[in-house]
Design a binder for these strands. Structure first.
Length: 106
DNA sequence: GTTGTGACTCCAT
DNA sequence: CATGGAGCCACAA
C-alpha cells in the first residue's frame, strides 16, 4: 500500500498508446503519485519493461541523457520532433477527453 | 536528524 | 532561451 503509486504509475505508462506521449506531471496526476519526481525514479529503477520513451517533460523535451534515444524511438512510432522538442499539443495523450469545443467567446 | 542527488514542475527575472 | 529559487518525494551515506 505504501507504493501503490508505483503499480499505478506503471499501469498508466503501459497504457499510453504508440504515437502518443505523456508528461511526468500527467502520469503522476493520473496514477495518483504525490510528485512527478517519483515517475522519473520509477522509470530509472524499473522502467525497462515500460514505454519510457513516451514520457516527456512538461515542456515536451525528454531528459538530457535520453534526449537522442527518446526522439529516435518516438520518431519510429510516428511522433516527429522539432529538434529536441515534441509537439505536446499534438501528441499529448490524455486519459480523459478534452472539454467540448463549445463556441467559446474567444 | 541532516545533506546531497535525481529520467520533475512552476514562476520570476 | 538561460538562470535561479522554491516545492516536491524517495533514498543512500
Amino acid at each position: 500500500m505504501d507504493d501503490e503509486f508505483n503499480e499505478r504509475v506503471r499501469e498508466v505508462i503501459a497504457s499510453v498508446p504508440a504515437g502518443k506521449v505523456a508528461t511526468y506531471g500527467d502520469i503522476a496526476a493520473i496514477s495518483g503519485a504525490p510528485s512527478p519526481r517519483l515517475i522519473g525514479r520509477i522509470l530509472a529503477e524499473d522502467g525497462h519493461d515500460l514505454p519510457w520513451h513516451r514520457i516527456l517533460r512538461a515542456n515536451g523535451t525528454p531528459a538530457p541523457h535520453l534526449l537522442h534515444e527518446q526522439l529516435e524511438l518516438l520518431r519510429v512510432e510516428g511522433v516527429l520532433a522539432d529538434g529536441n522538442r515534441v509537439d505536446l499539443r499534438k501528441y499529448r495523450w490524455e486519459t480523459e477527453p478534452p472539454p467540448a469545443p463549445h463556441d467559446s467567446l474567444f
